[in-house]
Design a protein around this nucleic acid. Structure first.
Lengths: 95, 95
DNA sequence: AGAAGGTATGTCAGAACTGACATATTGTCA
DNA sequence: TGACAATATGTCAGTTCTGACATACCTTCT
């Protein structure tokens, strides 16, 4: 997966970076998971710090997860979502 | 996420390992993706070696992906699936 | 303006993942 | 059975991810 030195691709530079449609799908799916995480946290009226405590991680990582920071894996996003109580059905809908 | 030294949990040792239901969901989802990868490869009548070439990786990694080896991340599984042409809709159905 | 709560960004040591390679096992033919 | 293709398993150096910490950036108060 092509990645920039310091972040994901943004906007519509797909051609310039020669990103395949498949890679675009992957990135879009990541972003969907990020959005879902933020929504779920807000739905439960938690701050990032509270969420971090609940997930045994740090506030900064929660912020990065929600922002789609490239240093956050899909694995981490999925584990976070499940631990917040999101069900696979909801995931499937969000993807 | 609790992991054994050399592999995932198997069978029904959930209690012994104190795996939460959320973690179980995560693991089950992983396995669903593994199965989907194998199915898709077979549907396209590819060997693991051919698939490896197409995805720019090695046969052993394909084998590990399909076997649910713990050294394989969901990120890798998803990228592989997308690059084999699986669509998000199909993913959602498999999850 | 200043303080406080919440969110974002940068960095880093330790942990986990990846591709590659070697080798072993399984399957399938003649 | 033997030979060959396919799949599985073990290992490792290089890369990437993670939690933690510091710190910066907002908002929203008074």
């Amino acid at each position: 997966m092509k990645k920039l030195k310091n972040g994901w691709v943004e906007g519509s530079v797909q051609n310039f970076l020669e990103l395949s449609n498949e890679d675009m799908e992957y990135i879009e799916m990541r972003l969907a998971l990020c959005r879902l995480l933020k929504e779920e946290r807000r739905k439960q009226r938690l701050t990032q710090t509270q969420t971090a405590a609940r997930l045994h991680t740090s506030q900064s990582r929660i912020a990065k997860m929600e922002k789609g920071d490239p240093t956050v894996s899909v694995d981490l996003l999925l584990q976070a979502l499940f631990r917040l109580g999101v069900k696979r059905k909801e995931l499937a809908a969000a993807i």
